[in-house]
Amino acid sequence: MKRFRHADAPDLETAIVLLREEGAEAIAGGTDLLTEMKAGIRAPELLVNLKSLEFKGIRDEGDALAIGALTTLSELEAHPLVKERFPMLAQAASLAATPQLRNVGTVGGNLLQRVRCWYYRHPHVKCWLKGGEECYAEEGLNHRHAIFGTSPCIAVHPSDLAPALIALDAEVRVVGPEVDGWLPLEEIYCLPDENHRERTVLGRGDLLTEVRVPYRGNSRGVFLKAMERAAWSFALVSVAARLDFDGNRVREVRIVLGGVAGKPWRVRDAETLLQGQAPTEELVAKAAEAAVAGARPREHNAYKIPLARSLVRRALLELFELRSRRD
């Protein structure tokens, strides 16, 4: 790890000013950043410690739950209001990483974490995302890579919280010189391109400070995650689904996939199919098919298509309280 200067941010304004400095980076939990610094793929000259700021803890706001960006994943997972109102969010947090990482890693850091692509993480590979010429995964080892979306980088977004929070229509507050205000979480993510080799629209010095999750009436959600082993694995594919019912019909639905694209991937065609319908197994099967209709597998990751289809199907059956012959 290269040497750096270090400052505890005394307040938000100073943090942002410091982060505008050339070579400055923010550190919160640091569980992702320090691994990148140790690998030599990031070498900030100044680390601005955000843990001294007040964006911590979870608050009931009457019509929504407010989650400070510095809240740890452990706090999120164990919070009574999260468990009661948004069990899918508690589930997503509990399936991320390990107890040690959840005790340190923050909600903000989880939402803004960097990709796990082995070419990106390799200290001696200068891939496209690191300013190089090409994406080595495109023709190389792409087992874990994207089946949706078009971008010169095919690494997938690794967050478990992001799909769950997008399915819950969460908004985030960003404070900073380039982006400032509340915006839907879904809208901070983008696929990197030649003009913007980044996965979010946040600029230098922009800080995500809070997440707001609106309460819904007759709503149910589920988060499912397929992993190579049952603990400490990033999602091969995950699905976050939420249904609001009007009687026995679907009033509103969100289906968001993780691990399949460069950003959390909302499958709107499947959502549209379910809108206003009364649930049946046939409808669920159609929606699951629609969820993967646009998928384009690479040499080593075609397995993700049936995996995603099955997870969507299973999530919907669970939400509709239907039992399938194959389960």
Binding site: R3, F4, A7, D8, P10, E13, T14, R20, L46
Partner: peptide, 17 residues
Amino acid sequence: VFEKRESTLGAADLAGP
């Protein structure tokens, strides 16, 4: 906020390298 650059940098407690 960003006009206060000089004074703010001076005020922050920088340690290292």
